[in-house]
Design a protein around this nucleic acid. Structure first.
Lengths: 214, 214
DNA sequence: TAGATTGTTAATCGATTAACAATC
DNA sequence: TAGATTGTTAATCGATTAACAATC
């Protein structure tokens, strides 16, 4: 399979294209040129065309891009045309928040299970899914076909739990724990380090204050 | 003030350095070379030295970097030596999760207020902070010195609320709403688009499956 | 057909890595 | 002093932008 490697930078922009195209679609817009889209998204038209051409020629000279078609195609590239069975490990505030986030379900991320160590949560259900105890996790993974494990637990537990789930066949982890996981190469990890994000914000504030001091 | 512009890429890596140095500090490590740190962090030693030298010479030839000193200095750069009064707007699951996240408080992000439109939440308190109604937001902002507004509300409301808070002096927004805010240049926005992150994960799974199909 | 706009090549810009002299 | 390791310059690599021929 010859397929040239797509750069991280490009992939990182795809969801944003998808979002804007979704909004255009909702607004009933039928076609858009790279130039018009570039104004909306505040990127260069050149970048849009380059990015899209990594995946094929979705446009048409003299016309632009058909919004619905492009939306669907980017959706396919992002795997939005498939279902993704997920479990959430760590049913604290954040885990529960994600479990309740219905719009993931709409995108095909189907919540199959919720796990926690806290015995007080045993039997509590969120959107019809009961919170199970961690002891049941291995058996659950063996009996169910789960694609993504979402880790919303303290960093002290995250690494061992990550190892446990990959021993039981999980290939992809969405990691909210405040640590890097250092897993084997073939495991797909996407980190959401909220405090890193907050620190970037704080850095920018500090710099802004520096600049406007005088 | 001559200060050369620091690239986004560098800034994006600072919190990760800070995290690793914090761990080293906890582990009682006194000094570390760029080469040893590069192995731990899986980046090049060259990059570490380049990155740090954007801010000054923190190391010493023949010795490396003093962990505690470097940790403190990066902390200062990131504004971790100051307090940041924050409010959370949108006290749904995610807003409450963030409000309960005590480790932000330890980093100096002090929760001063919580707001929501839902009258059922009126008077409910989280960590001693009562949830207020949105009608009180403007007055609250005028009477209190708030640095950061955290937006954890639906995208339909996010844009207008963002405009409201900046009219009342807020300079920095941590945006969890599923939309871009398009605010004036001088407003500092850090976006956490969770579904974008999830789509990147999904993309990588799809590509992995493609590659291992045969 | 003429105008518009893509797809794509070439030029530029920026970020990363390599190398090494400076120095602790 | 010798060895280690930084700070920094130069070389490489990759990503973005500009330009334009192809084509709808």
């Amino acid at each position: 399979m010859e397929q040239r490697e797509i750069s991280r930078a490009v992939i990182g922009r795809l969801p944003r294209y998808y979002r804007y195209l979704g909004e255009l679609l909702e607004a009933g817009v039928e076609r858009i040129s790279s130039s018009d889209l570039s104004k909306k998204m505040r990127v260069t038209a050149s970048q849009i065309r380059q990015d899209l051409n990594n995946f094929g020629g979705f446009g048409q000279q003299g016309y632009g891009y058909n919004v619905k078609y492009l939306y669907t195609e980017i959706g396919k590239i992002l795997g939005m045309n498939r279902e993704h069975p997920i479990i959430i490990i760590g049913a604290g505030n954040l885990g529960q928040a994600l479990a309740n986030y219905a719009s993931f379900e709409k995108s095909g991320f189907i919540l199959k299970g919720l796990f926690d160590v806290n015995p007080r949560l045993e039997g509590v259900s969120i959107r019809g899914i009961p919170i199970r105890m961690m002891d049941d996790l291995e058996e659950f993974l063996q009996k169910n076909d789960i694609e993504i494990a979402i880790l919303t637990l303290p960093k002290s537990k995250a690494i061992e739990v990550a190892e446990l789930v990959i021993e039981n066949g999980i290939k992809a982890i969405w990691n909210f724990a405040h640590t890097d996981l250092n897993l084997p190469e073939d495991i797909i990890v996407e980190n959401v380090h909220l405090s890193d994000s907050l620190m970037k914000l704080s850095y920018n504030i500090s710099r802004y204050n520096e600049e406007h001091k005088n």
